[in-house]
Design a protein around this nucleic acid. Structure first.
Length: 596
RNA sequence: GGGGUCGUAGUUCAGCCCGGUUAGAACGCCGGCCUGUCACGUCGGAAGUCGUGGGUUCAAAUCCCAUCGGCCCCGCCA
């Protein structure tokens, strides 16, 4: 009898409401619900079932005197059974109201009930507490049943809905581009897909639709966007998966400010749709040089100060031998002023000094400003007037601590940036729920890669050089700025883009700088260079990381918490077992021999 | 490729340092009783290759080595 019912593919009646939506205003209504048994309290007579669906939980009461048949069914119910219930919404007596539940003022008095499907005992409780992550991933469909994951994925959906609504309102056209595409050099490792029809040849999954969206500008769509899946075969991190999603945007003829305006308009729409929050616009804007000098990184967390100070000037002619030698080598001295209300123990200072020495081979000097002058291991090497000069330059007050490192500027600044983050973490300054958005622009175009002994693009090889720096492209390429920009939120890069090159000759010159011969450039990017020859308009754009944004919206540190079916750090899907072996027949068809 | 950390009933964890009864607890599960619970209560019960393999030892969850897996980090990720 029970089994026969369970076999029916159709539920016995239509659902009228979601469990979690019922309120006191529904009192007196006859409702029909479907849901999972989240809790069962059997009093021998009365049975209480907490019924859960995507909107939440409602209590159902089974009374053997009023609905004997339904009560008999409720006796069979167990956790995570999927059941259908019909009954009346009734207001609970004052003594039995549950303030913990959104539906706690009412309950459903069951008149009919049916078990639609039984459940074996779940491998972990479907509740607020997360189990060990490997079991969650193995039974992901159950993990996603948990309210927290339901909330996260629906919030991600709202974010995308907000992005689409905004971009549509601004005249952007959503266009899908191929997943099977061609391998291109530079950048991350490609995921390859063998071609059966063309033995020995491979497609690559796109690392981003970069070139395709540029070609769409050549086509004249003028404003394009796509919620684009991207693939990069690199090692995973807490915020990195091999496949991820970007909101990819490209437009014809923008200046940097135009792209920023669209980007922040879209982000504002995302926050409005996902959280009901109105973001103040425009976002803060800074140039890369300034950001790097003040924060030692290109993605600063602006929720706190503790900016890096350049102290080379006030230390000129110092009696402190180590600093003096550094300065004589053309190196610089940087410091961070830690105000007196942030107290570091001597032991913490020693640990910081030691870890800096071990990790970077750099010495940390520190002094504390007291009424009688400086205190600390190096205080005795610094003359009073010199100390006063530094104190003034750094804005030191009594009780403040000054942490200093001397060395090559490009090496010391990132170290100071790390130190700044460490201090921010140590004093709880990064726990603030403030949202500090920041546009960083004018990155360098190129950097020197010592390993490959050549210049590589900081962004990608299609980024346009800053017009003011064009003349230095040959004489001093490393000093050339790019028309590029990133959007940073609380120390995380959530988007980035650039104005592109749309001129064939300029693009060829950049390829040349990067060490491509003309033939190589033609072979790899001939279709792009060819397209530029057909009246390609100036264009530029940006791409935003959907998971990064969703992580911020959901207040989580793990990308897996905002993806339905993520992979482990070894890029394995614990649920399906991907990647898996394939049959010899499949390999033969693809002309592939596995050597390991 | 490298460093760190975790792995014990279905789940969450204790036990591991300092080797020595039958490896415990809570929740869950199974059965009985219970008409206002919502961490229901109550009585009883089942449940463990201590990740895997090897070594040391009279004796290993415990010490050593290797290995597998989850997580975090460095490299890598234009």
């Amino acid at each position: 009898m029970q089994k026969a019912e369970g076999l029916s593919p159709l539920p016995p009646w239509r659902r009228t409401d979601y469990c979690g939506n019922l309120r006191a205003g529904d009192a007196g209504r006859e409702v029909a619900l479907w849901g999972w048994v989240a809790s069962r309290r059997d009093h021998g007579g009365l049975i209480f079932i907490d019924l859960r669906d995507r909107e939440g939980i409602v209590q159902v009461v089974f009374n053997p005197e009023r609905a004997a048949a339904a009560h008999q069914i409720a006796r069979q119910m167990r956790l995570e059974y999927y059941v259908a219930v019909k009954g009346a919404v009734i207001v609970r007596s004052e003594a039995t109201v549950n303030k913990e539940l959104a539906t706690g003022e009412i309950e459903v008095a069951a008149q009919e009930a049916q078990i639609l499907n039984e459940s074996v005992s779940p491998p972990f409780p479907i509740g607020d507490e997360a189990a060990a992550e490997d079991i969650r991933l193995r039974f992901r469909y159950l993990d996603l049943r948990r309210p927290e994951m339901q909330r996260n994925l629906r919030r991600r959906h709202r974010a995308l809905a907000g992005a689409r609504a905004y971009l549509d309102s601004q005249g952007f056209v959503e266009i899908e581009t191929p997943i099977l595409w061609r391998a291109t050099p530079e950048g991350a490792r490609d995921y390859l897909v063998p071609s059966r029809i063309n033995p020995g040849k491979f497609y690559a999954l796109p690392q981003s639709p970069q070139l395709l969206k540029q070609l769409l500008m050549v086509s004249g769509f003028d404003r394009y966007y796509q919620v684009a899946r991207c693939f990069r075969d690199e090692d995973l991190r807490a915020n990195r998966q091999p496949e991820f999603t970007q909101i990819d945007i490209e437009m014809t003829g923008p200046r940097t400010e135009d792209v920023m305006a669209v980007g922040e308009g879209m982000i504002a729409s995302i926050y409005r749709h996902a959280l009901g929050v109105e973001l103040p616009l425009p976002f803060t804007r800074m140039k890369y040089d300034d950001v790097f000098a003040r924060y030692g990184t290109d993605k600063p967390d602006l929720r706190f100060g503790l900016e890096i100070l350049e102290l080379s000037q006030p230390f000129a002619g110092t009696g402190f031998r180590i600093f003096a030698e550094s300065l004589s080598r053309g190196e610089t001295i940087h410091g961070i002023r830690l105000p007196a209300n942030f107290a570091l123990s001597r032991r913490e200072l020693d640990e910081m000094t030691e870890s800096l020495r071990l990790r970077n081979g750099l010495g940390l000097a520190w002094v504390r400003a007291s009424a009688g002058g400086w205190q600390g291991p190096i205080a005795k090497f610094v003359a009073a007037d010199e100390g006063a000069r530094v104190a003034e330059a750094a804005g030191i007050c009594e009780g403040d601590l000054l942490l200093m490192v001397a060395g090559e500027r490009s090496r010391v600044l990132p170290v100071m940036g790390d130190l700044r983050l460490q201090l921010g973490t140590r004093f709880g300054l990064r726990e603030s729920d403030a949202r500090c958005f920041l546009w960083v622009s004018d990155f360098p175009l190129l950097e020197y890669n010592a390993e490959e002994r050549r210049m590589v693009p900081v962004n990608h090889p299609f980024t346009a050089p800053h017009p003011e720096d064009l003349e230095r492209l040959n004489s001093d390429p490393l000093s050339v700025r790019a028309l590029s920009y990133d959007l940073v939120l609380n120390g995380e890069e959530i988007g980035g883009g650039s104005i592109r090159i749309h001129n064939r000759e300029l693009q060829l010159r950049i390829f040349e700088l990067l060490g491509f011969t003309r033939e190589q450039a033609e072979e790899k990017f001939g279709f792009l260079l060819e397209a530029f020859g057909y009246g390609a308009p100036p264009h530029g754009g940006i791409a935003f990381g959907v998971e990064r944004i969703s992580m911020m919206l959901c207040n989580t540190d793990s990308i897996r918490d905002v993806m339905a079916f993520p992979k482990t750090q070894k890029a394995v899907d614990l649920m399906s077992g991907a990647p898996s072996d394939v049959s010899q027949v499949q390999l033969d068809e693809l002309s592939i021999r596995v050597t390991k």
